[in-house]
Nucleic acid binder design. Sequence first.
DNA 1: TTGCGTGCAAAGGTTTTGCATGGCA
DNA 2: TGCCATGCAAAACCTTTGCACGCAA
Lengths: 139, 139
Amino acid sequence: MDNKAYNTVQKQKILEMLKNNANRHLNVDEMLFILNAKQIYVSRATLYRYLDVLVQTGEVQKFLIGENEKACYQYIEDKEHCSHHFHLMCTECGKLIHLKCQKVDDIVEHIMEEHKFMVDPGRVVFYGICEECQNKEAK
Amino acid sequence: MDNKAYNTVQKQKILEMLKNNANRHLNVDEMLFILNAKQIYVSRATLYRYLDVLVQTGEVQKFLIGENEKACYQYIEDKEHCSHHFHLMCTECGKLIHLKCQKVDDIVEHIMEEHKFMVDPGRVVFYGICEECQNKEAK
DNA sequence: TTGCGTGCAAAGGTTTTGCATGGCA
DNA sequence: TGCCATGCAAAACCTTTGCACGCAA
């Protein structure tokens, strides 16, 4: 179904940039800045359009973080691996935690059996506040 | 600290409307529509401002759900009893399911205790495929 | 009387879209 | 050659803000 997609320079550069920054999440402005610094020009519209595609295919995960819930994107390096566990995202500091926990993973099974709903863990984000930020707030 | 807040007709009507719809969440347009149908006029700005207050005090929960992550609000009837719930969203048909399940709610507690992460259920959406769409695909 | 609340309109920021052109296959 | 992709600008969307006036306490 994807055989109608053309391979263009813009897509290559966007994907390359995302892969080079797979260890963190970027918002659209940051992406354009990074590309610009390398003399690569991609229009905002194209970036949005391609990001949508990448999120659909699961190659990139979209997060909403910060006070204003800004959209951020991050390349998922190990798609196979990451699609089997849940992610925790701190809305304060933006930290991404890979949650490897059987008890939580069991929920998928429970929801399937009891609620007949097939959860796709790779797409699910538990938003909340991480330990560090909780301590910060307590002060 | 709240003794500086004035009691106005607009606030009364907004709160009343939210309480009358405590069984579901509403976005701002829906709220204005409901109020309008009752010949009650409240400006959009006032609604946003008061919703912010109610979310701060915990009387109302804010959800970000759906494809476009639209903001929805719901009155929390039993503030003490953590009447929050999770959402399941079908990525095929877009159906939103309100998951009221103790076992799933317990996960919040587990993640807090074991992983020291404070999950905000209002921000969490379990993406996956609903029963109907599973059957469709199987055909 | 004091000063918070309201409505209005404008501004703000982010994302989407229509259209003509460009470029991959 | 056919059709998807791109860039541009405008539009769409949702939310916030400044200001003058109104109203609760």
